[in-house]
């Protein structure tokens, strides 16, 4: 009987230790989880801001003047063709027209 009591006492102490360490680990994990959650939330917030900034920078109202300053213009129906061959032949034709205009 004395052995049983002693064993029970040992088990009690061991359990208390295990419980304490589990509790401690759990708290540590909870801290890490909340840190990760905060990091995720911050990253999501940053992504949202970056997405908004990218969309703001890519808005057509801003891009169009920049594109025009580079000599570009809205695509015209003349730049569409049914096939690459048709496009190439048209480019060649217009290229020769341009050359003739320039007197090359």
């Amino acid at each position: 009987m004395r052995f049983v009591i002693l064993a029970a006492l040992m088990v009690t102490l061991a359990s208390a230790f295990v419980l304490y360490s589990s509790n401690y680990d759990t708290r540590q994990l909870e801290v890490r989880v909340s840190e990760q959650e905060r990091a995720i939330e911050k990253a999501r917030g940053d992504i949202a801001v970056l997405k908004a900034e990218r969309a703001h920078l890519a808005r057509p109202e801003r891009i169009e003047p920049l594109a025009r300053a580079m000599g570009l213009a809205p695509a015209s129906e003349q730049q569409l063709a049914v096939s690459p061959d048709a496009a190439l032949s048209r480019v060649m034709a217009t290229g020769s027209t341009t050359s003739q205009k320039r007197g090359d």
Partner: peptide, 24 residues
């Protein structure tokens, strides 16, 4: 003329080729 190409509408080639105005 401006949104047609954006919408991917292919112009009829006869009409388009008849009025080449793109200089590459």
């Amino acid at each position: 003329g401006r949104v047609g190409p954006l919408l991917g509408i292919l112009p009829t080639q006869a009409a388009a080729a008849g009025a080449p105005s793109v200089a590459f």
